[in-house]
């Protein structure tokens, strides 16, 4: 908008004003269309049941040097029993690219099939591409029952 007043100065100002009004209106309309679409694309937060502890089975049901996947809320957790008979639990989600790991008796390791990532039985990343150790969970043995809970 110019403040010059020429022969049709008033007209220029009016034209400029209308142009801003129209442009602003178009931008506002566009925003009014795009904002709901962008918001719609973002998936809503689902209320998750907060799981703090799960039962993982019986001590006698797990041999030494074995591992199983346990459902912990909606996350997989791997429970392993080492050669000494001790239990350990870790997040079963590989820290590399989100695959689910498995216990390999022949290697004596926790192994990820996707990119050949290896963790020792303390969850430490020892070979392959994983950048971090597996998150550890707490294993509680009460008599025969094994339960797994989040580390505080």
């Amino acid at each position: 908008m110019t403040s010059e007043v020429g022969p049709n100065g008033e007209q220029e100002t009016r034209r400029g004003f209308l142009r801003y009004l129209l442009g602003g209106g178009l931008v506002a309309s566009l925003a009014a269309v795009l904002y709901p679409i962008m918001a719609y694309l973002k998936p809503p937060q689902q209320a998750e049941v907060e799981v703090t502890s799960v039962k993982a089975g019986k001590v006698s049901a797990m041999e030494k040097e074995s591992g199983i996947i346990v459902r912990f809320g909606n996350k997989p957790v791997i429970l392993v029993r080492n050669a000494a008979g001790e239990f350990r639990a870790f997040s079963a989600t590989c820290t590399h690219l989100d695959c689910t790991v498995q216990f390999r008796k022949d290697m004596g390791l926790i192994w990820c099939a996707c990119h050949n990532g290896r963790y020792d039985l303390n969850g430490r990343n020892v070979a392959g591409p994983p950048p971090r150790p597996l998150d550890e969970y707490r294993v509680i043995i009460q008599g025969e029952d094994i339960s797994i809970s989040k580390k505080a």
Partner: peptide
């Protein structure tokens, strides 16, 4: 969702060269 990734898992052949490269790049 609660099974381990099966051994020998591979992507489609046209993603394989990138997949294989990712295997060789160290964690850090």
């Amino acid at each position: 969702a609660f099974a381990s990734a099966p051994a020998g898992i591979k992507p489609e052949w046209y993603f394989l060269f990138m997949f294989q490269t990712l295997k060789y790049i160290p964690g850090k």
